[in-house]
Nucleic acid binder design. Structure first.
Lengths: 213, 213
DNA sequence: ATATGTGAATTGATTCACAGCG
DNA sequence: CGCTGTGAATCAATTCACATAT
């Protein structure tokens, strides 16, 4: 019943990034006020978001940066490694395979799949592209957790089903398709073209008045 | 007062994609029910979303696919071209410059900027990388509308300010930083690492029960 | 004295039920 | 008779005010 608003999860990720920066700067303590300013939300919101998970602060004194950072990493499941597969080695899939920042939070790229015979066997980001048929075996061997879905739209649902069947229950969906995810599977959309279209909407809007600072 | 929920704007983009697919398949008519099924929302939701903008259907008969598609394109501001600049020609910026699908909705890549002297003058996606100092002049010349912000985190706010000052009021923010956007500027976050972290959260969650179909 | 943690109040979004039109 | 369009009801999220702990 006590389900967490998805917006809260997004904000936790933001708080974590801010705490990471503070930690690197050697800042030892912070406050809901301070986090709120950096995250562009209200201090109430910060406290409410954290309150879903426990009590991490000290009344009158705020939060310890390293402690809260550690708690957020634990809450977000970032204290363990996650094994990742790329499904669809097109232009985007290839770019993602070469993306260096994955390792920073123990996201490990462990496999890459495609169905195009011309691509099978080719090297990409230190891996060899395999046929999607091998997914079930490789998913078990490599203990895959998350799939980066970078196949063409038409193939997205089928590929997502294959991931689920292979026990890969987390997906980042880079295609514009809305994936029908079974219970227990979690799909995050990452659609930058959709983002562009939203920007387009707001640019051509007759400016519905935002309140001044 | 009459402001549109941001979730509605996101869904409109989804409806548009579905209508585009139907149109290509030659399907002439659809219904809120049908759109709802494809978009994984309720039919109420579809009708309510559309009702913010007008009356596009025929009672008893549903919606004309091409008509509704055209209306959504108009609502989303996609009947005119938008000129785009890449700010930050790193790995990601370069990948975006080569991204072919931009043209599909009249998004035109018109300029690329960086501050690294080693990158200035280099070709990227059919353009020549310019120094960010040239942004004000180029923005006017090329009538730039939207910036793809692919600079490192530390530089993101400053680059966003420069875009705003140059009259570029739409931004896709690929950095994890939360941008402080002045009135009239619209920033859409596109942070795939944040998406990964959200997936991580939901995978390690003690599965808070989702209702069955 | 100060800033957290939290029930209560408010605001906003989604769901519903049905009136209205083709 | 179908299915849309929409006010009213419900549900969820955010904001607020303040009691509480250090």
């Amino acid at each position: 019943m006590s389900s967490i608003p998805t917006a809260t999860v997004s904000r936790l990720v933001t708080y974590l990034r801010i705490l990471g920066a503070l930690d690197e700067e050697g800042v030892a303590r912070t406050s809901s006020e301070h986090l709120a300013r950096e995250a562009h939300v209200s201090a109430f919101q910060v406290r409410k978001d954290l309150a879903y998970f426990g009590r991490f602060g000290t009344r009158g004194a705020g939060y310890s940066v390293p402690t809260l950072r550690g708690e957020l990493m634990r809450i977000l499941g970032l204290t363990r490694p996650w094994n990742i597969a790329i499904v669809g080695v097109g232009r985007l899939g290839e770019a993602l395979a070469d993306y260096p920042n994955l390792e920073r939070y123990d996201f490990r790229l462990r496999a890459a799949f495609d169905v195009d015979p011309a691509k099978i066997g080719r090297p990409v980001g230190g891996l060899t592209v395999r046929h999607l048929d091998e997914l079930p075996r490789v998913a078990a061997e490599e203990e895959l957790d998350i799939g980066l879905l970078t196949v063409p739209s038409e193939a997205a649902q089928e590929a997502a089903d294959a991931l689920y069947a292979a026990g890969v229950h987390g997906v980042l969906n880079f295609s514009p398709t809305v994936i029908d995810a079974p219970d227990g599977m979690h799909v995050e959309p990452v659609d930058f073209l959709a983002g562009l279209k939203r920007v387009s909407f707001y640019l051509q809007q007759p400016s519905p008045e935002e309140e001044p600072a």
